[in-house]
Design a protein around this nucleic acid. Structure first.
Length: 503
RNA sequence: GUCCCGUUCGUCUAGCCAGGUCCAGGACACCGGGUUUUCAUCCCGGCAACAGGGGUUCGAAUCCCCUACGGGACGCCA
């Protein structure tokens, strides 16, 4: 063994922790463990507008819940820190300067509008969209001067104008991409932050990453990354591009059709070891074809070569079956009781729910039916109950708007939710009283229950959002969903009334 | 549109690298039967796939080429 195996997982803290992140983390970990190596967790927060500390913490929590442990990271440190890209800016800047001096990169002063137009023209001419190199010809002196004068600019890397880039992917063998297909990638944004492409190369190098194991979506970027390694005089790591998790319709797994938040699965009562097991069988089988296995089992025999490349469809039915096996085969009754207690059904839960339920109780037996929706995954109700006095089409519209609005709320609590729905009622020119019954049924499954906002806040964002989506699906199943066209125009209308979507 | 990647039962996959033992094996789902006071569990059985076409070869799911289909990338997002 000449060199230690070091892998990394590099999530960006911009939203709810995603099962895809866990999937990549799992294989990175298994590979590192198999080779007595280390796995690094690095936070890729170079998108200043979208990164949030809350999201970073959520990612750490989600992975920890799954039992995925990293050897170095922002929370536990390590010899190659810091482990947040935003804290490594000098390092990135130094390399950008070096590339600039070497003449391997140049400042670009083109406006986003011009670039947009350029892209459209090229697409129309059936070419691969690519920067046309206008600022490439700028004399270095002029470029320097304009930057000094405070004119906004980005830095782009120079790409060979002809020839091809050949590289090895550990899973697929040789991949050939023509340099003419590769854009003059921006490596420094106008806000001074590096882009992913630059930061990931610089950080992977300094963190001594030996194997980059990441999603297939990155495979087209390898030439840029390889070129950066070369220009900076560094040895590149080995690359392995894993297939992407898919929706039932084979598209890249997205929350539109599936719950993709790790916390949804936790809150809906799935066990972390079953999740890990299930993710481990996506695109992979152990040599002996065992179907029930632990992270340890996986790590013991893990072999990249055994990964199958067709994108696996994430199948909730099979996950449920597997989860069931853990519950009845792998855990003792006592352990299941423990899980139940720590999951939700503990004293803390009763303490939080009782104040909401108390005034509605005549007997103790009234309590659990009222609280039932907080423990359930899926709810049973009819479309008529859901829509109430509303027209089903209108109900679908309102649910969709709420879904989008809910995606924007970072703070998930009673007051926040309350003002969100009040705002929505105002915008829709409805009384809160008219708007709310729909959501009441979607969230609680009943017209008689605990207060909506408290209930949602207790339920958490993942379960709540999933229920809204479920209500929408229910409407669609009865022919009252939003058509593709309707969705598009609704989106436009939404932007006007509520502002841009975050997604 | 251009480029890249992929393609075994509806789904997850074994087999492919080292071609014959594969009229393709296992699992989920589904269907049928048995155990069980119901249901579930458990057990037994069934349905169901090498995308298509050309090569190479005595022989191809396995090697090569083409086509089709699917996905991804084409951002001052990662």
């Amino acid at each position: 063994m000449t060199e230690q195996v070091r892998t990394r997982i590099a999530p960006s803290p911009t939203g709810a922790p995603h099962v895809g992140t866990a999937y990549m983390a799992l294989f990175n970990l298994a590979f590192a463990r198999r080779h007595q190596g280390k796995m690094v967790l690095r936070i890729e927060d170079t998108d200043r507008a979208r990164s949030t500390p809350g999201s970073e913490q959520a990612i750490l929590d989600a992975l920890s819940w799954l039992g995925i442990e990293w050897d170095e990271g922002p929370d536990c440190g390590g010899d190659y820190g810091p482990y947040r890209q935003s804290e490594r800016l000098e390092l990135h800047q130094a390399e950008i300067d070096r590339l600039l001096e070497q003449g391997d990169a140049y400042r670009c002063f083109c406006s986003p509008e011009r670039l947009d137009e350029l892209r459209k023209e090229q697409m129309a001419r059936k070419e691969t969209p690519r920067y046309d190199g206008r600022c490439l010809a700028l004399p270095p002196e002029e470029s320097k001067q304009r930057a000094k004068n405070g004119e906004p600019f980005v830095v782009r890397m120079k790409i060979p104008s002809e020839g091809e880039c050949r590289f090895m992917d550990e899973l697929r063998g040789e991949v050939v991409i023509d340099w003419s297909q590769v854009d003059h990638q921006v490596i420094r944004k106008s806000d001074g932050y590096p882009t992913y492409h630059l930061a990931n190369v610089v950080d992977d190098h300094h963190m001594r990453i030996s194997h980059v194991i990441r999603g297939e979506e990155w495979i087209n970027s390898v030439p840029k990354h390889l070129l950066l390694y070369k220009l900076l005089g560094w040895n590149p790591p080995a690359f392995a591009h894993l297939p992407l998790l898919r929706n039932p319709d084979k598209s890249k797994l997205s929350k539109r059709r599936n719950p993709t938040g790790i916390f949804y699965y936790r809150d809906a009562g799935f066990l972390p070891e079953a999740m890990i097991n299930y993710l481990g069988m996506m695109g992979y089988t152990l040599p002996d074809q065992r179907e029930v296995f632990s992270l340890g089992d996986l790590s013991e025999t893990f072999d990249l070569k055994r990964i199958s490349l067709g994108g696996p469809v994430f199948d909730l039915d099979k996950l449920r079956w597997l989860n069931g096996r853990y519950l009845r085969e792998k855990l003792s009754e006592e352990e299941v009781i423990d899980r139940l207690l720590t999951w939700k059904a503990g004293k803390g839960f009763l303490e939080r729910v009782l104040p909401l339920a108390l005034k509605r109780l005549e007997t103790l037996s009234d309590f659990f039916p009222l609280a039932q929706f907080l423990l359930a995954d899926k709810l049973e109700y009819t479309v008529t109950e859901l829509t109430g006095k509303l027209d089903p089409g209108e109900a679908a519209r309102l649910l969709k708007i709420a879904e989008w609005e809910l995606e924007k709320t970072a703070e998930w609590n009673r007051d926040e939710l309350s003002s969100l729905f009040q705002r929505m009622a105002q915008t829709e020119e409805m009384k809160l009283k008219e708007l709310l019954p729909l959501f009441f049924v979607a969230i609680t499954g009943s017209t008689v229950s605990l207060p909506l906002f408290d209930g949602m806040s207790l339920l958490g964002p993942d379960l709540s959002r999933t229920r809204i989506r479920l209500a929408l699906e229910k409407l669609a199943d009865t022919g009252n969903g939003l058509s593709k066209k309707g969705l598009k125009s609704l989106e436009k209308e939404y932007r006007k009334a509520y502002g841009d979507r975050v997604d």
